[in-house]
Amino acid sequence: MLDLFPSRQAGLFGRRHKRERGAKIPVTVLTGFLGSGKTTLLQRFLASPEGQGTAVIINEFGAVGIDDALVRDSTEETVLLGNGCVCCITRTDLQAALRRLVFDRERGTVAPFRRIVIETSGLADPGPILQTFSTDRALGGEFHVDVVLAVVDAINGEAELDSAAEARKQIILADRLVISKIDLAEPAAIGRLTRRLQALNPRATIDSAIKGVLDPQRVIEPAAGERSGFIAEAEHSDGIGSFVIAQDAPIEWLAFARAMETLIGLRGGDLLRVKGMLNVAGGRGPVVVQYVQHLAHPPVELEAWPDGNRSSRVVFITRNVAERDVRALFATVQALAKS
């Protein structure tokens, strides 16, 4: 549209946003292994002023039972909670549930909710949930995942990380980690678990909670702040690794986009999550990019950089994709684009 109706105020990709989610509905994905304390944390959050106006989606995959007192009395798919919140259980189709919530909000048949919290089942891999927001064009236009929060049980967490690949993946894909039940565990065990979590996901900050008490802001704050260090370079079990590619000089958008297209074409299935901010040549604010496997979110240019650091930085969480190969690909494509 910018060709037909140009605007000097527009950015490289349309209206420049004040923040990454723009005007979309913010989503918190609350993950964590069975019994880790997700529901307790969620109940505490919903009872707080910050929790007001939250739509909760309990994403129950397969035969896993719902342990959620919030909805145990309900036979309805969607129930209204106190505090202006709404809750629905989706057994199969998260997309349908999200669409229905937006539709009902437009019609005024549910509360004018301000955010969504998706509580995943304990055995869920959060990857497909993140993909949902990329695969569905309509949903991608309405929702934005602000933060993936993983809850880890201080007592059983280590054992679960040893035994369950899903538990490890939940940690690796999270933006923020919460160690629950710290009042019940030995300090030494908490220390070991903390080191393990840091090794699995050096990008994420780690909070702790007793009986679900956590600063409600930490449930909803966008995750961008967590990435300030950008020092993550870790090799995990299951062939999953993470690394950061950073560059001080402005990046030509075309070169970056072509490199990502190539990478996706060759190894898209192994790009579990790619997210970052780019200093794009010709841009005014940072350009936020995000990919989940084969799918790219539309890039968004922000009005301003969040801090003094103007370098481009992209975090890759991949499966069996070597950092050196990705670096080489980007270097080659950029060199070709200049020549």
Binding site: L70, L80, V110
Partner: peptide, 18 residues
């Protein structure tokens, strides 16, 4: 936190700050 399907939030017209 009990479900309240009679909640006034189910009424159509409600204040909104979005």
């Amino acid at each position: 936190m009990a479900a309240t399907d009679k909640s006034p939030i189910s009424a159509g017209y409600q204040p909104v700050t979005w």
